[in-house]
Amino acid sequence: MRVAITHLLADGDHVIVHSQRRLPATGAEIAVIEMWRLDGGLIAEGWELIEPLSHVPADLAWWAQPAT
């Protein structure tokens, strides 16, 4: 799998990683957001959001600013 990390954010015991990945079997590209909560230097909790990269533009359309 090819992984390109786009953003890496950390604040206190929380870390967020935004990446784009190409799956080896199909060549499909996905966008992934992983959220981690650390405790004592170890991962205590983790959450993950996965979406086909082709869906991202449509899902972000609501962010678009109206034309003035």
Rank of each mutant, 00 (worst) to 15 (best):
R2K: 15
L23C: 02
E51H: 07
E45D: 12
L9Q: 13
D39S: 11
I50N: 13
L49K: 09
A10V: 05
S19Y: 03
G12A: 05
D13T: 12
E34R: 15
I5V: 13
G40T: 07
S54E: 06
E48D: 08
I5K: 12
G46Q: 14
V32L: 07
T6V: 08
G40F: 03
A25T: 06
R2T: 08
Q65I: 06
E45R: 14
V17W: 01
T6L: 13
W47D: 07
E29H: 09
L9S: 12
Q20Y: 00
A44S: 14
L9I: 09
G46K: 15
V56S: 04
E51Q: 15
L60N: 05
W47P: 00
A28S: 07
D11T: 10
I50M: 13
E48W: 02
M1H: 07
P52M: 01
R2V: 07
A61P: 02
T68N: 11
D11P: 01
V15F: 01
W62H: 11
A31P: 03
P57V: 02
E29I: 00
A61F: 00
H18W: 02
S19D: 06
P24Y: 02
W47N: 08
S54A: 15
V17Y: 00
S19G: 12
V32T: 07
L38M: 15
E48S: 15
P57H: 02
I50Q: 13
S54Y: 03
E29L: 04
I30F: 05
P66K: 09
R22A: 01
L8Y: 11
V3F: 04
L53S: 04
M35R: 11
L9N: 12
W47R: 13
D11F: 09
P24E: 09
V17D: 02
E29W: 03
P66V: 03
G27L: 00
T68F: 10
R22N: 04
T6S: 06
G46I: 05
L23R: 09
P24I: 04
D11N: 15
G27C: 04
A10M: 10
A67T: 10
L53T: 05
H14R: 14
V17A: 11
A67W: 04
A67I: 08
E34T: 08
L60D: 03
A64M: 07
D13R: 15
A61D: 06
T68S: 14
I30P: 00
E29A: 04
P52K: 05
W36L: 13
I50R: 14
T26V: 02
V56N: 00
H55Y: 05
D13K: 15
M1P: 07
V15H: 04
A58D: 07
E45H: 13
T6D: 09
D11V: 09
Q65N: 06
Q20M: 01
G41R: 14
R2W: 03
W62L: 08
E48A: 14
A58M: 01
P66I: 02
A31S: 12
W36R: 12
A67N: 10
W47Q: 11
A25S: 07
P52V: 01
R21D: 04
V32G: 03
A58S: 07
V32C: 10
A67R: 09
R21I: 00
Q20F: 03
E51L: 12
G41P: 03
G41L: 14
D39K: 09
A31C: 09
P52W: 02
A4L: 15
A10H: 13
W36Y: 15
V17L: 13
